[in-house]
Amino acid sequence: MPLAGPSGSALRLGVNIAIFATVAIGLQIIWGFCGQPSFAQAALYGVGAYAFAILTVRHGVAPWPALAGATVCGGVAGMLLGLPALRVSPEQVALVTFALGEVLRVIEANASFTGGSGGLAGVAPLTLAGRDLVSAGDFYRPALVLVAIAYLVARWLRGSAAGRAMFAVRADELAARTMGVRPGALKLFAFGLGGALAGVAGGFSASFSSFVSSVSFGIVPSFQIVVMVLLGGLGRIGGAVLGAAVVLAVDDQLQSRPGVRLGVTGAAMIVVVLTRAGSLRAAGDLVRVRFRRAVAA
C-alpha cells in the first residue's frame, strides 16, 4: 500500500483502513467463523479506545501497557456481550448485541469517567524507540503491523481445531454437537478474541487521533463494520481487509456530503444484508458468468 509520495490525507486514510480492517477481522471471527451476527463491534472498538484514553490520561499509564490494557478490556467486554449468545438464536444475537452496544455508547457519552459528551482529549501518543508517534506517516507502519498481526491470528485460528469447530457451529450447531463440539465455549472464545482485536484497534486509534468521543462508536460505524465483513464475504479474512478498504475509501470521498454519506452506508447495509450476492466475490462470480454467457452467445 505505500503510495508514491503519499499526501497526509492518503496516509491518514491508510492508517484508518488498517485500524478498521483489524476491527473487521475481529468481527469476521465472531460472525464469519462462529456465526454470531454481532452489531456491537463498534462498541467494543470504543471500549478499547476509552480504556486506552482513561489509562493514559487519568492514570498516567505508559502507552504500550495501556494498549495491552485496551486489548484485554475489549476481550473481556466481548465475552460479556457474548454471554447472551449462549442462550438465544443467531437472529436474536443481532438484536441483543445491537441493544447492548447502544447501552455502552450511551454510558460512554454520559458517564463522568469517560469525559461525557465532551470526550477525552490529550490521549498519549504511542512511542517507538523513545520517539513519540505523531503524524499519519509515523503511524502508517505500526498500523500495517497491527493489521498483519490480526490477519495472522485469524489465519492461525482458521486452521486450528477450534476454528474448524467454529465453522461447524455456524453451519449447523446441532450436527456440530453430535461430534463433541461445545458451541458455548467456542462462542465465548470468538467473542473474546474478536473483542480483543476491536480493543487493540480502538486503543491504537485513540492514540492516533489523540482524542476519543462516543460519536466515533455509534450506529454508523457499527453498520459500516458489518458492511465491511459482509462485503468481503463471511468467513474470508482477506475479505474483511478488502471490505474495510472499500468502505473507508468510499466514505472518504463522501466526507464533504454528510447526508449522502449516511444514505450510502444505509443503502450498502440493505444491499449486502438482503442479497446473497452481497459479497464482492459473489459479485465477481456473477460478472464472470454473465461475461462467459455473453461471449458464448
Binding site: A161, A165, A168, M179, G180, R182, L186
Partner: peptide, 24 residues
C-alpha cells in the same frame, strides 16, 4: 470447510481441550 477439515471435525471430541476449546 475443505474436505479434510470436515473429516478432521470428527476428531474434536477426542482432542485435549481447555475450557471446552479443542487444541489442535
Amino acid at each position: 470447510l475443505g474436505v479434510d477439515d470436515n473429516i478432521a471435525l470428527g476428531l474434536t471430541g477426542r482432542l485435549t481441550s481447555v475450557a471446552g476449546i479443542p487444541i489442535s
